[in-house]
């Protein structure tokens, strides 16, 4: 069983990484969603795989904790799931905004945005600077 879980997480990660390396926003959003699944599942498995022992206390008197699975990764992953929804929502809105505003859904910076001004010497020592 461990093998299945590990390979599924690996496959999901690989698909997620492949998709975030694409050039269009939608593929990247999907890739991030896939990565989210993989990472949440991975974090969850840090509590190891346990079947049929949910961390819902059955008998207060017994008090032993050996019969339950580790609740802490679950609590952390629960918030992570909700937060990743928030993240996906923001990223989707940004993708949508850039598509509506810019007319295409490319993820790379347009070339004319990227070309930086030539690097000057440490300071611009021109006289007109004095009047600035």
């Amino acid at each position: 069983m461990e093998m299945l879980v590990a390979s599924a997480i690996g496959a999901t990660t690989a698909a997620g990484i492949y998709l975030i390396l694409r050039l269009r926003t939608f593929a990247v959003v999907l890739g991030m969603t896939m990565l989210t699944y993989a990472i949440n599942a991975f974090l969850f498995t840090t509590g190891r795989l346990v079947v049929n022992l949910p961390p819902i206390l059955q008998d207060h008197a017994a008090g032993g904790h050996a019969t339950y699975t580790d609740p802490l990764p679950q609590a952390l992953v629960l918030t992570a799931i909700v937060i990743s929804f928030g993240m996906t929502a923001v990223v989707v809105m940004m993708a949508l905004g850039s598509f509506i505003e810019g007319g295409d859904d490319r993820i790379n910076m347009p070339d004319d945005d990227y070309i930086m001004p030539p690097l000057k010497t440490v300071d611009d020592q021109k006289p007109e600077d004095e009047t600035a």
Binding site: I9, G10, T13, A14, I17, L21
Partner: peptide
Amino acid sequence: ATLAGIGMGSLCYAMLRRDFAFDPIS
């Protein structure tokens, strides 16, 4: 992507096959 997948998968497998190194705080 494959490298990353293999890395993540084997890390996960290696972890699942081992008991906790320290007692969990839970």
